[in-house]
Amino acid sequence: MSANNQQQLTDELLQQLREETFVSLITVDHETGNPYVSAISWVYAPDRQTIRFSIDNGSKNIMNVKKHAGIVLTIIDNGTTYAISGNASIIEENMDNIPIDLALMECRIEEIRDIMFYGGKLVNEPDVEKTYDEEAAEKLDNQVMNALKEA
């Protein structure tokens, strides 16, 4: 492991993962064995070793994790990109008190790598805009984030 690799979240990453943020979820496709990439935003880190996230419970990622627990989460923060590797588990296939069908998953962190190419720095981080009813989006976001925090 190089000197830039870590095994737990830094203060900055912990804070970023306690807010709704843009994250890529990479799993192993249970049918092909190829990487399977999804964008997610309902993510919460309760501590430096754990990341919880919520996805549609009909997502292919559910079957992927059931067959192969290894995942990678990528996050852009502080001008760089991090790859957070670990093993995921499904905590709840259908989260209670959420008006849409979502699963609750959890990743135990094994390694965090700064994967930004040499000499590069991101000058703008992703800025996501909800494209559906703003009030409904805020209500749903609050429900899901609270459920992630309380799990």
Rank of each mutant, 00 (worst) to 15 (best):
R108F: 07
T21F: 04
T10C: 05
E129M: 13
I76K: 14
V128K: 10
K66D: 07
I26S: 15
P126F: 09
V72R: 00
Q15F: 08
N97C: 10
D101W: 07
E111A: 12
T81S: 14
G79D: 11
S2I: 06
G86R: 06
T74F: 03
E31Y: 10
G33R: 04
R113N: 11
T81L: 13
T10V: 07
N5Y: 13
K149P: 02
F117L: 13
E92G: 05
A69S: 12
K149C: 03
R113L: 06
T32L: 07
G120T: 11
Y44A: 01
T10S: 15
E106Q: 15
E111D: 10
L14N: 06
V144W: 06
D11R: 08
K121M: 12
I112Q: 02
T10Y: 05
E19T: 09
S54K: 10
I75Q: 06
K139C: 01
N124T: 12
L73M: 11
P35W: 09
K149S: 09
K130Q: 05
M105K: 00
K60C: 02
S2P: 11
D101F: 12
R48C: 01
N87F: 01
L148D: 04
L104P: 01
F117M: 13
I90N: 05
I75M: 03
T32K: 08
E92S: 15
L102K: 11
S54G: 14
M1V: 08
T21D: 04
D101G: 12
L17R: 07
V28Q: 10
V72K: 00
S89V: 14
T131Q: 12
R108H: 15
Q8W: 06
A3K: 13
Q16Y: 06
N64E: 02
A103W: 07
E138H: 12
G70F: 13
Q15P: 00
H68M: 02
A103L: 08
I26T: 15
T32H: 06
S38V: 02
E12P: 01
I90M: 08
D29L: 03
E134N: 07
T80M: 07
I71M: 03
E150V: 03
G33K: 04
D77P: 00
L148S: 09
T80N: 08
V65L: 11
A39S: 14
K121D: 05
E125Y: 10
G120W: 12
N64K: 04
L122K: 03
F53G: 04
T81N: 10
N94W: 09
E31H: 13
N78S: 15
L104V: 06
I62H: 02
T27P: 00
A88W: 10
G58M: 07
K139Y: 05
C107A: 14
I84S: 03
E31S: 11
T21K: 09
N61E: 12
V128C: 09
D29Y: 05
P99G: 02
D133G: 03
Q7F: 11
E111S: 13
Y118K: 15
Y118A: 14
D96I: 03
L73H: 02
S89I: 14
S59P: 04
V37P: 00
E20K: 13
S89P: 00
T10Q: 04
Q8E: 15
D141I: 06
F117R: 08
T131A: 05
L104I: 08
G120D: 10
K130C: 00
H68A: 07
C107T: 14
A39V: 13
Y82S: 03
D114G: 01
E106L: 09
D133M: 10
